[in-house]
Amino acid sequence: MVVGRSAARAGYLFVAPALLLVITFRAVPAISALLHSLTRWNGVTPPTYVGFANFARLLGDGEFWTALSHNLAIVCTIPLWILVSLVLALLIHQETPGWRFFRAAYFLPSVLSPVVIGLLFSALLRQNGPVNSVLSAIGLGGLATDWLGNANTALPTLIVIILWGIFGHGVIVFLAGLAAVPKETFEAARLDGATGWRFLWHIVIPSLRHVIEFWGVNLVVWSFTSLFAFVYVTTNGGPGYSTMLVSYQVYLQAFEANRMGYACAIGTALFMMVFGVILIQVRLMAGKED
């Protein structure tokens, strides 16, 4: 019993620093944002209580719903992000010729800042940029367009840029997952004649279910909360509202329009939605296991 108490105390002590950081930098700001979402506040002068007025405004804010629909469109592409990373990780795991080079090459975008990636693609994709020049050179000049300046192509292009920036992380995560799968499992599958799509669908994906779940949850959270830099550098949410995301709208309201209270309301709504989506996602995955 004494040993148990001492161990518990030691446990608390070990947890304390991390807990303190989480409380200071996560819980306190989240509660503060929730309280400020009930106010009209410019971030400097004392806030004025308005109750749910910010949330009522949010319901009628077309820009918010447009931004949310773009976020959801990005979420819909996440299976593709996972699949790309998974297939590439599998090819490396199976030591396809040149796998050492590709392992390093695929991870390279992940160590680049979103700002660098955004600037790089902005230059590549401009009207008279290299991508359009190549298209013209191979006889596909008709496809050349102002990729980020055209409202029809801006969001898909942005998604491709984000995918390029993130897939390397996924490759590393899945490589780690594949390393933990016993070699015999794959060998047995091969001997049983499982190849290509069947191998991926019936052997690899079930073996990596927990890794895919982990990476999927990460990507969903990330797609709602961490794409700001890409949008800021490449399109500023435009043309018009065609690449507006909720996180970018929070920034605009808070720091451009000085509507910190309203920005907190959007942030709170975003938090609740992401939390809900994650809960559903985890439940669905747990349900499959059951």
Binding site: G149, N150, A151, G237, G238, P239, G240, Y241, S242
Partner: peptide, 10 residues
């Protein structure tokens, strides 16, 4: 933003 939409034909 509305001017962007206007100039972009949206």
């Amino acid at each position: 933003r509305e001017c962007q939409r206007l100039l972009g034909g949206q």
